[in-house]
Simulated assay, not measured.
Amino acid sequence: MSLPSFPPLDDIVRVLRTAGCVFAEDEADLLLSAASGPAALATMVEHRTSGRPLEHIVGWAAFAGLRIRVDPGVFVPRRRTEFLVQQAVSLTRTHSVVVDLCCGSGALGAALAHSVHPIELHACDIDPRAVRCARANIRAGEGQVNEGQVYEGDLYAPLPARLRGRVGVLLANVPYVPTDEIALLPVEARVHEARIALDGGADGLDVLRRVAARAERWLAPGGSMLFETSRGQLPTALDIVARGGLEPRTAVDEDRWATVVIGTKQG
């Protein structure tokens, strides 16, 4: 009795391309490698053509050379955000205390620990699904952290008080899409990622305001907060950081359309 066979790769590519998948060939390869059999593959292709993120289908995302676990509903780390990690790497020393706020899958903290280790890493997110992913991803980097803790809660609230004034690097990948623009996002994000990971309020900067207002008391002298923003939001974002008592500067990667703000505590 012969077993059912997988459809030809070209057929899968054709279906994905018709559905609008720009990188149909690469996606077809990934789906084939992840599928346990023809029936599972058919379901995965159907999910992809309906707009579900590829990363949610296969269960992981490629980020900064790592395979990051991403469960359904969890924010998918963007490749442009690797630029933020690169900026953080230049500011991180071994044994630094690092906090990853709004950590999502924990991709930023895990990638930073992979590049500079050991570090003391603390991550938190308000979404329990994201917290589960972050715990798995940070455990995967065991040996690269002196201490790796993931907390569930709102911004700084779940962090241990002993970290105040000791944080060398504060990663804050805050949501920054204005509320009225959520409806304009691709279906992959709009439908399949947690809204709380996307919606930054009326001008997209509400969460940043909350983070920046308290960053100075958590940072060590010379410590820095880093976050991503859009070009249009940049002037206001810089002002928010300055009002929080930090000295802001900007780093830009034109190729990746990435704009990162770094706010440093003097002292």
Rank of each mutant, 00 (worst) to 15 (best):
A140F: 05
A110K: 10
T43R: 15
E82V: 08
G267K: 01
V177D: 07
A140K: 11
H114A: 15
V187K: 14
D71I: 02
F75T: 05
E247L: 13
L3D: 14
A19T: 09
G245A: 03
D203E: 10
T229S: 06
M1N: 10
H114Q: 14
A34G: 11
F75M: 11
S5V: 13
E142P: 02
D26R: 14
R256L: 13
L101E: 05
W257K: 13
P235F: 11
L66M: 10
A107D: 12
L198V: 00
L108W: 13
L30I: 01
C21D: 05
V58I: 15
S115H: 14
E247H: 12
L205W: 07
R129T: 02
G263M: 09
I119Q: 06
G245Y: 05
P175E: 12
V74E: 04
A140M: 09
R80M: 04
T236A: 14
F75A: 04
Q149M: 08
P221M: 09
G143A: 05
V150L: 05
T81H: 03
D199Y: 03
V145H: 06
S5G: 09
V261N: 08
V207Y: 08
R17L: 04
G143Q: 06
V22A: 15
R217H: 08
P160F: 12
V169S: 05
M1Y: 07
A113E: 05
H56E: 11
E254H: 09
F6A: 11
A88M: 03
A107T: 10
D239Q: 15
G165K: 07
L54C: 01
R78P: 09
A123R: 10
R80F: 03
V45R: 08
L54Q: 02
A130D: 01
A213D: 10
V99D: 06
A213T: 02
